[in-house]
Structure formats: C-alpha cells, structure tokens
C-alpha cells in the first residue's frame, strides 16, 4: 500500500492563490452588475416620459382584462391556444418538408434533374422572400382564385409559414447530409446496401444528429413567427392583443402577448441549449 498523495507546498500555494483570485472575481462581478442595474433603473424611471409610458404599456388592470377577455374583446389567452396548435403543426410539417427537399436535392442522375431543379429553385426563392409577403400571397391571393374547396385563411397562413421555414430547414438538413464523410457511403455501398438504404440507415441518422442544434434554433424562430398569421385575419394572441389595444387605446395587451410568447419559447430554447451542450461535450470526449 502506498500512502495517499500529499500535495506539495508549491501546489498548496497555487490552490490558495487561485481561491483568492476566484473570490476577488466574484466580488467585482457582483459590484459591476449592481452598478449597471442601478443606472438602467434610474435612466428609465427618471426619463421625462416615464409616467406616460408606464401607464400606456404596463397597466396591470388592462393586462388582466386583455388576458382573460371582457366586454366582448377577445382574450389573449384563448388566442394563444390557436398559436400553440399552429406552432406544433407548422413545426412538424416544416421539418418534414425540409427533410424531403434536402433529400431531393442530393439525388443524382439525369432522370431526377427536374426534381432537383425545382427543389433548388424553391430553397433559393423562399429563403429570399419575406414571410409577410408569403402570408399575404397565400391568405389573400389563393382565395382570390375562387377555386372550389379553398381552405380557411388560417390554414393558408399556416401553409405560408410551413413553406417559408421548410426552405430554411431544407438547407440545414442538406448541410448535415453533406457533412457525412463519403467513406461512410462507400462502406455502406460496399456491403451491398442500395442508395436508398444507405441514406436511410447510414447518412441520415448521422446527418440529423449533427444538425439538431441549428434545426431546433430555426424551430424557435418559427414558433415566434407563427404570430405573423394575425396579419391574415385569424384571432390569435397577437390579433387579440391588437383588438384590445384598439379598444382601450393602451399598448399593455401587446406586452402581455410578448411575455406569453417568450414563456412559450423558453422550454424549446432550453432544450436547444441542452442538446448543443451535449453535442459539444461528446465531440470533446474524443476517441
């Protein structure tokens, strides 16, 4: 039995020095945070228009009423239920569309050229087109055609969001697919796997794992942009807030809707950070 290791005098000195530095850093951080916070508070509340802004943006009574709905005004909370449903459905559809387009773009061979060309044109144009314009085109343009069985404005608005975000997600998926080393494809093909099986069992599982953090990040962006559907007319949280604001001449309902959107995004942002951290740790673990 060997005796447990006793740290040398030098090492003990180092530990003591590091501890002293750590305490000093914490104290400085606490002090500077307090100073910045105080200055911000004084700057905002001390401004000449603060009383006015406070009453028109942060009115507690109006906030409660807008949230729950009253006097025939729509409630923000019930509008939010529409947003939540749209978020779930649009996210799922946009991910599926993005993956499909990314796979189409990786196809080879002359037969698939038109498919490839279409997929490329799609990702190029819809990444450039502002979402607001797509929503207007879908929600007001398509019903204008007066075709039989045109879906509701809400469905058309959701389709606009799916089509726009599908283009971004397709590029993220494609980056993932291209990041898988060609030797992986060679290994799979050498075992007799067809191109389709190679994609399904070897390339896509690795690709999707690699791009999960950016995919989730785009999903967070999609969640909040679902609120833009209010431009097409359906009464979601933002539309409800706008109607409340128009009736009370007070902007507090918008603040309420904004806070609710942040709260909705927090879980997914948390998941994104956790997944990113885990991926980074796994990478650093090395071979």
């Amino acid at each position: 039995m060997t005796a447990p290791h006793q740290p040398s005098r030098t090492q003990l000195e180092r530990i003591a020095y590091r501890r002293k530095r750590a305490i000093r850093s914490t104290l400085i951080a606490a002090f500077s945070t307090a100073v910045v916070g105080l200055l911000l508070y004084l700057g905002v509340t001390g401004s000449p228009g603060w009383a006015r802004v406070k009453s028109s943006f942060l009115d507690w009574d109006i906030a409660v009423k807008a949230l729950t709905g009253r006097d025939n005004y729509p409630s923000i909370l019930s509008g939010l239920w529409l947003n939540i449903r749209l978020m779930v459905i649009c996210t799922a559809c946009a991910l599926a569309l993005g993956l499909l387009i990314a796979i189409l773009r990786t196809l080879r061979g002359p037969v698939t050229f038109p498919v490839r060309a279409l997929a490329t044109t799609y990702t190029y144009s819809f990444r450039g087109l502002p979402l607001i314009i797509v929503i207007y085109l879908f929600a007001f343009g398509i019903p204008g055609l007066r075709l039989q069985g045109t879906p509701s404005v809400t469905v058309l608005g959701a389709a606009a969001i799916v089509v726009t975000y599908g283009a971004y997600l397709a590029e993220v998926f494609r980056a993932g697919i291209e990041s898988v080393h060609p030797s992986q494809v060679a290994a799979a093909r050498s075992l007799g796997l067809s191109y389709r099986r190679t994609m399904r069992h070897v390339v896509l599982p690795q690709a999707i794992r690699r791009v999960t953090p950016p995919l989730l990040n785009d999903t967070v962006a999609l969640q909040k942009d679902v609120g833009l559907i209010s431009l097409a007319g359906p009464i979601d949280a933002i539309r409800a807030a706008q109607i409340n604001q128009a009736g009370t001449a007070n902007f507090t309902p918008y603040v309420v809707a904004g806070v609710l959107f942040v709260l909705l995004a927090l879980p997914l942002i948390g998941v994104t950070d956790w997944v990113t951290l885990r991926a980074a740790r796994r990478q650093n673990a090395g071979n």
Binding site: A186, A187, A188, R189, S190, G192, L193, H201, V202, Q206
Partner: peptide, 29 residues
C-alpha cells in the same frame, strides 16, 4: 448492389458506422 453482395471490402480507416453499436454495424447488411 448484387455484385457487392458477393465481394467484401475492408478499408484502411475501418469506416465503421459511428452511430451504431458494434453488433448493429455487423448485422446491418
């Protein structure tokens, strides 16, 4: 694909599938 089912190839850099266990690597084909 039919020809490759009759010919095995082993690579210099192994090229195992990193997202699969050893057993899944072997039983895939």
């Amino acid at each position: 694909d039919l020809v490759r089912q009759k010919i095995g190839l082993v690579f210099q850099s192994y090229n195992l599938f990193p997202h699969m266990t050893v057993l899944d690597n072997i039983t895939l084909a």
